[in-house]
């Protein structure tokens, strides 16, 4: 029974079926299956298969995003059960993500969040137009490994610099790395504001995050 259930879990991720994934997660809890087993032997198998297909060029970004969303739906059901049992899933790192104050462009940042989540990071997405204080407070609260800052406008990218300066002032840079992104962001800008990493797209962001935390690519 549990073997079939685990296979169905993997398939729900491959198919990008969030509702089915959440439903299977609930079935697992009812059946008394260890939530960690459900994640690692069931849902993660699906994520890995989608990842492999993506690497081979057989599937594209929509499949990856839908698999990521289905994974999120399953984790949302299983996480409370994990906590109840005093267990925690293994994550590659904690990432606080936000689009900086004055900027409400969302898609790039959200795509990065989805890709990071699907790749095993725990993501705290604070949304758009987020003031520096709020970003730093959240990073301190969750002991973030990485802060990801998105800005799409030449007029708002200066906020990335201000946030990094504020992190310096608070002495946060040893604990927390900073990744930046957005259309006007260049390697010059990264160097100028002393960010730790950047990427021009969501897939590259996952690799950049792994690199910053010395996680396997």
């Amino acid at each position: 029974m549990s073997e079939e259930l685990l296979k169905a879990m993997a398939q729900s991720i491959i198919d990008g079926e969030s509702e089915i994934a959440a439903d299977l997660a609930r079935q697992a809890i009812e059946a008394g299956l260890d939530p960690l087993t459900a994640i690692s032997k069931g849902f993660v198998e699906g994520v890995n298969q989608v990842g492999d297909s993506f690497a081979c060029g057989d599937v594209f970004l929509p499949e990856l995003v839908m698999a990521g969303e289905a994974m999120k739906a399953a984790i949302a059901v299983l996480e409370p059960e994990l906590k109840k049992r005093g267990a925690a899933r293994e994550v590659l790192g904690k990432v606080v993500l936000a689009t900086v104050e004055g900027d409400i462009h969302e898609i790039g940042k959200s795509l990065v969040g989805t890709m990071l989540t699907a790749s095993g990071f725990e993501v705290f997405d604070l949304g758009v137009n987020v003031p520096a204080d709020q970003i730093l407070a959240k990073a301190e609260e969750v002991k973030a490994d990485i802060i990801g800052l998105s800005a799409l406008l030449t007029t708002t990218m200066v906020r990335q610099k201000e946030i990094i300066e504020a992190m310096d002032a608070r002495g946060m840079r040893n604990r927390t790395k900073v990744m930046i992104g957005g259309a006007p962001v260049t390697s010059d800008w990264v160097e100028k504001i002393k960010a730790d990493g950047y990427s021009e797209d969501a897939i590259g962001a996952v690799n950049a995050a792994k690199l910053l935390l010395d996680a396997p690519a």
């Binding site: 993506f54 060029g57 594209f60 970004l61 929509p62 790039g108 795509l111 259309a183 021009e200 797209d201 969501a202 897939i203 590259g204």
Partner: peptide, 9 residues
């Protein structure tokens, strides 16, 4: 267009 592999613009 979004690049179907990277999401790039």
């Amino acid at each position: 267009w979004a690049d179907p592999r990277s999401g790039g613009y």
